[in-house]
């Protein structure tokens, strides 16, 4: 293995590990103020929204641009997932719709 590739991989591993590790290791819920704890409970919904919405409404460069194949496949998945909170069902339904739309769009 070339040394510069090894340095690259180890460096990437280190800078990826640190932000993953420090909060979990050193934030302690018994010490955290109630408000902060409440705020932390909103991270999942906020992060997931920040992952899902740009996928549907933004191109790779950040410009607002509807992604038709994603958006049209997403709407039934939204409704399905809302009614039936099934991960597998949503994934399979989404894949079939997206695949089918590929022939139409």
């Amino acid at each position: 293995m070339r040394p510069e590739t090894l340095i690259l991989i180890l460096g990437m591993a280190l800078v990826t590990f640190l932000p993953r590790f420090f909060p979990m290791a050193f934030l302690n819920r018994r010490v955290l103020p109630e408000k902060v704890k409440k705020g932390l409970e909103y991270f999942p919904i906020s992060i997931l929204s920040a992952i899902v919405f740009p996928m549907l409404f933004s191109n790779g460069g950040g410009k607002i641009e509807i992604q038709p194949q994603y958006l049209i496949a997403a709407i039934p998945v939204f409704l399905f997932a809302w009614k039936v909170k099934s991960l597998w069902g949503s994934v399979i339904l989404g894949m079939v719709l997206y695949w089918g739309l590929g022939f139409v769009l």
Partner: peptide
């Protein structure tokens, strides 16, 4: 085979579960 939409669909369902 709809593979690009596997993780997006997973995220959509996980978002709604929240």
């Amino acid at each position: 085979y709809g593979i690009p939409f596997a993780l997006p669909a997973l995220f959509i369902c996980l978002l709604l579960i929240q």
